[in-house]
Design a protein around this nucleic acid. Sequence first.
DNA 1: CCTCCACAGGAAGCGCAGGAGT
DNA 2: ACTCCTGCGCTTCCTGTGGAGG
Length: 414
Amino acid sequence: MTDLVPNPTPVSSQNIFEKHFSNTKSLFVDREAISPHFIPEQLPFRETQIHEISESLSATLSGKKASNIFLYGKTGTGKTSVTRHVLTQLLEFAKGKNLPVAGLYINCRNHSRKYRVLSKIVEDLYPEERFFGFSSGFVYDKLVDWVSKNKAQLVVVLDEIDKTKDLDELVYSLTRANDEVTGGGITLIGISNNLFFRERLDPRTKSSLVEKEMVFPPYNAEELRAILNDRVKRAFAPDSVEDSAVNLAAAFAANESGDARTAVMLLFRAGELAEQKGLEKVTDDEVKRAKKKVEEEIITSMVSTLPKHQQILLFSLAELSLNKKPQAKLTGQPSAENVLFSGEIYDEYCSMAKKLKEPPVSSRWYREYISELEMFGLVSTTASGQGFRGNSRIVKLGFEPRKIRDQLEKELLG
DNA sequence: CCTCCACAGGAAGCGCAGGAGT
DNA sequence: ACTCCTGCGCTTCCTGTGGAGG
């Protein structure tokens, strides 16, 4: 083997791969099983949903159109996993019995318009043909043709359906297609994690899309623990994760969102951290550190994807809270707290923007920015209340000013 | 109590980019 | 290729709100 590298020049006493190689006894036996995309064949605590959906869809097996279903629930509650699971089972079964049932899954985040969704459907139905630049009507006819010709029951899953711009027209097209096909039918399954989305639907869209509906509740700590334990068994080597670590990860996730995805993610990261340190077991400590790390990553990615002027605003905010000046606007008691007024932040933002040769936005829009940053959890605001004049807001950074400033410095100046 | 201050946040409207229809 | 339409980001204008101060 060494002959392949005839004369390795020793650069340092230790090869850079040494530290990666020394951990040959990995804590993981199957990383895939703990990745966010993994869909286990058993979906615990979702038996009722699986049962209901499959019962409803079973109509397609006897050549009838099934009721359109609308699923909603927060992220990581298993909507997508359950639906995909049921759909693959349905298609497998139908294939085995040679029944004309077809199904496809579309994420509306990637196909945000009616035309895109229809093209995607048709492209999946005619895999050999391409449909670039054909009219909406042509694509629609192709869809109707395919269903009629095959006398097929087509199940279309529209995930993140709230991302569709012209949903009313899309639903109308697809339901109208049902009237036009001669034999066969189209069943819709809509998935949304926006709980209020259903209320905002056009009444006609609502009545055709929501023939049946189902709520996916968040998982509680106990359920999350069971889910995590199952994943741990698949993904980690035996006895390499402490029970308390699993409990902690479950508790964190349950406390925040009841989101299985973040719980799984947390444990995966904890595993990586433990491995890096050459530990034999994943403990509470790693879970805590993983949580901190994940949070920091979220902040970093959030901050860097912010529109430029919100970045400038955050930067000004960080600067101001770092060099807290004597509270000029205070009329009352001295405050040790690092309080920042809406007005002074806007002033700082304006001068900062000018320094960066950017025309500052209006104060009205600045207020809108602050609200948006608050929604992201990057800042928090309180009413000024007693001791301060006027009806104003006091703004605080949600995270360490120094970190935010350092990152934005790179982002804006570097 | 009234007035002023320093904002909050609603309403209307404007210019623009990009998609749909022709 | 060309208009037309529409959603989006934003400005302008405005009314509302709560405390300070006379």
